[in-house]
């Protein structure tokens, strides 16, 4: 098994096919979208492939050390041009092909007009653990 991160972007990914912002959807369309995401996670739990799913608030700030005795420097909230992560799902699957298949399904979540959003999801493998037998 191998773990993968499905990363969803507010900004920074190529534009989806169905690109209407969520605030312009009807309430029913939003409910349908949320239901799709929940059903997807529940289905993965049943197949024994679900690990974690979290959503992030959009208010992000960069923070860095500015030297001993000085408060950290902050930069934010992020400018419009910066990449912004919306949330993630972690899956544990048998193969890369399966990970791609699931990411494709998640990208088909319905948006405006009940049509699939076709949004771009970033798929990233986790590092595994070193195997015991190497030579």
């Amino acid at each position: 098994m191998a773990k993968y991160l499905l990363l969803k972007h507010y900004r920074g990914a190529p534009a989806p096919v169905n690109d209407a912002p969520m605030s312009e959807w009807t309430p029913d369309e939003i409910s349908a979208h949320v239901r799709y995401m929940n059903d997807f996670a529940a289905r993965l739990e049943k197949t024994g492939e679900f690990v974690d799913s979290q959503a992030l608030a959009p208010e992000g700030t960069f923070v860095r050390f500015d030297g001993e005795g000085r408060p950290p420097v902050t930069d934010g909230p992020f400018a419009e041009t910066k990449d912004l992560i919306a949330g993630w799902m972690v899956i544990d699957v048998d193969s890369y092909e399966r990970a791609v298949e699931l990411a494709g399904e998640l990208s088909a979540a319905p948006g405006a007009g009940g049509e699939p959003i076709h949004e771009w999801l970033e798929l990233r493998p986790f590092y595994g653990t070193p195997s015991t037998i190497t030579e």
Binding site: L44, E45, T47, G48, F50
Partner: peptide, 14 residues
Amino acid sequence: YLVPEATMAQRISR
């Protein structure tokens, strides 16, 4: 295997 218990329970029952 670093997965939630519910996930592993489903994997085993499947």
